[in-house]
């Protein structure tokens, strides 16, 4: 039942999950900029770890990345846009939320559209996309994705609590 799922997570827990999502997004976005900063300060190993971690999720091609302090950011321009957009979306989520509910799928598809078109036009050679076009279309998707992932993770918490409740009632059942 929807009402049971919504009631099992308290308002305080919903705010706590939102805080966790927003702070995590901020840390990830900050580390994208921390990598070139540390590299420029000769903190080579710390920068290497950050670049190495982000290498799992991004091609990190220098010609497709922004540069700061004469070093490239930890991810490409598109990924930079996505992560910064997500951090911004997560931060402003309480202002735009509709009762902590997930929006209709059309907004996610619409938000992904420009990013997919930008990628497809560049991939096919029909149009030479730029750092700015990749970052902006990525940021648009990131902002909207935050409005799905934040209530989604709150519902995930509800699922875990229901699972724990089921297991506890199974354990305490008389044999």
């Amino acid at each position: 039942m929807l009402s049971e799922r919504r009631q099992i997570v308290s308002e305080a827990e919903r705010w706590a999950i939102w805080t966790f999502v927003a702070l995590s997004a901020l840390v990830v976005a900050a580390s994208i900029f921390a990598a070139p900063f540390l590299a420029s300060r000769r903190a080579g190993f710390a920068a290497y770890l950050i670049y190495g971690a982000f290498a799992r999720v991004c091609h990190q091609l220098p010609e497709r990345s922004f540069h700061l302090w004469q070093h490239q950011l930890a991810v490409c321009a598109r990924c930079t846009g996505i992560y910064i957009g997500f951090a911004c979306g997560a931060a402003i989520y309480p202002l735009g939320r509709a009762g902590w509910r997930m929006p209709h799928r059309r907004w996610l598809i619409l938000a992904a559209g420009p990013m997919v078109i930008d990628w497809a036009l560049g991939f096919t050679g029909l149009w030479e996309n730029t750092h700015l076009s990749r970052a902006i279309t990525g940021a648009l998707f990131g902002v909207v994705a935050a409005f799905y992932l934040t209530p989604g993770l709150q519902d995930f918490w509800a699922t875990l609590k229901l699972l724990r409740r089921e297991r506890a009632s199974t354990y305490h059942q008389p044999s």
Binding site: R5, P151, G152, L153, D155, T159
Partner: peptide, 8 residues
């Protein structure tokens, strides 16, 4: 299916 179940 709820988003939480999908995430699980």
């Amino acid at each position: 299916v709820s988003p939480g179940d999908g995430a699980l």
